[in-house]
Design a binder for these strands. Structure first.
Lengths: 238, 238
DNA sequence: CGTCAGCTTGACTCATCTCAACTAGGGTGG
DNA sequence: CCACCCTAGTTGAGATGAGTCAAGCTGACG
């Protein structure tokens, strides 16, 4: 199911210098000798699809950089209502806050490979490398900007605008990773998309159908194809 | 209209050492000599109620610490729809990202006093003070956590839960600042609250009336009184 | 004392949710 | 290799929470 790039020898001893997501991850801040020190801390971690990577409230003993696959980062209300705050793609970092406990839960939505760093060791490294801290801070403020975008979406957009904005956002991120921006692979379920957009799975499904009827997208197995990106941008209302 | 604490001599030459919000602001990270250097950069800024402090997209020439008053931090959609992402209270910092352009707009909702720092000078100071950067990063990740809480609220809570959660959140923040947690002063309009909660002003008003009818709160001029905090917590659905 | 912004309330509408039936693959075990 | 089941997705019909539109109230301010 995984692309060949994720064979288990991809980064066996934490070979950061040949890491394919380094340029888009927080590790991009480091020079060669610093990378070596980071490498000493790195472990490979893999998670099967639909398994839990970490849970809100658990002691945060590790931080991760995703190297392959897709994860969902979410919060639960006591009655089971779920809000996905972000989908994680290769290059994304988990544990920016360096705090003692995770503030959210994370699941693999498809098989995930990640680079795992012990939190206290990583935190020590951050203390000794101010530009790694600077990079983490940039990543945190970037996420904050994304979070604000998402608040606008959740609070002030219609179902159709939400779905269009979701597809465009994913398209952009996949483009950044060098993936196709026409055939979007959607490893997550309709329920996941609904939990991300503050909708129900039925509304997501109906909206896909409507966009397909309007020839803006084509719904295919495990994904969608973007037929009319311009139209999609209009529908997303900036 | 302002409490006496905001007389214009409060911090005339940027007297950080006697600043009343220092302990809750990012400046708390600094020791005496560092504070002196920060002081050299500080200017006082005041903004009348209902005036714009800064606008999304503008060059970010300054960062601020709010010392008095309340501001709203928001994004606009092209058609005028507004989402307030956060209300700023004394101690809150604007400009965590240190980026070249503001990613949001901010208005004073009541008269605001702030400590103003030129961005490039402040950024230079951050480069020379790693624990100030650490503090900024902590503040950024804390805001990220708040942003995630707010996404859950916007995406998955009912109007009543939203209003209850808003009141409890404000109550907690005001408590932190040593203000009353029974009589909550609400300087913002119903429209502001609606734009914060992803509702309409009518729904906010109706929900206040309903909570008042249930004797959970009492609606008074320019604020509300919390009659039954326990009940309010139940209604907020954690 | 008149005007106006902010707030409340009512009546009605509608976008989205809820509940439910049905379809399509994919995997599993006999 | 087929029959079954199970998960995921689609679609329909009806319910409803929140929005819209509109009227009226009230205290602040000039």
């Amino acid at each position: 199911m995984l692309p060949e790039s994720r064979d288990p020898t991809h980064c066996p001893q934490g070979r950061c210098s040949v890491c394919r997501v380094r340029s888009v991850s927080v590790c991009a801040a480091l020079d060669r000798s610093e990378l070596d020190r980071l490498e000493a801390l790195a472990e490979n971690a893999v998670f099967a699809g639909k398994t839990t990577m970490l849970m809100q409230g658990d002691p945060a003993d590790a931080v991760y950089t995703i190297t392959e696959g897709t994860a969902r980062l979410y919060r639960l209300l006591p009655d089971g209502r779920c809000q996905i705050v972000r989908f994680l793609l290769p290059g994304d970092f988990i544990g920016l806050s360096l705090s003692e406990h995770y503030a959210f839960s994370a699941d693999a939505v498809e098989p995930v490979a990640a680079c795992r760093f012990g939190r206290s060791a990583f935190s020590g490294l951050v203390d000794r490398m101010p530009h790694l801290l600077r990079r983490l801070h940039e990543a945190a403020t970037h996420e904050l900007t994304l979070a604000q975008d998402h608040m606008v979406l959740l609070g002030r957009r219609t179902a159709e605008e939400k779905v269009a904005a979701f597809l465009l956002g994913l398209r952009k991120r996949l483009g950044h990773l060098g993936r196709s921006t026409v055939m979007l692979h959607l490893p997550m379920t309709r329920q996941d998309i609904a939990d991300y957009l503050g909708l129900t799975l039925e509304t997501v499904s109906r909206t896909f159908s409507k966009l397909a009827g309007d020839k803006v997208i084509l719904v295919v197995r495990n994904g969608i194809q973007v037929l009319n990106p311009r139209r999609l941008e209009d529908l997303a209302a900036a």
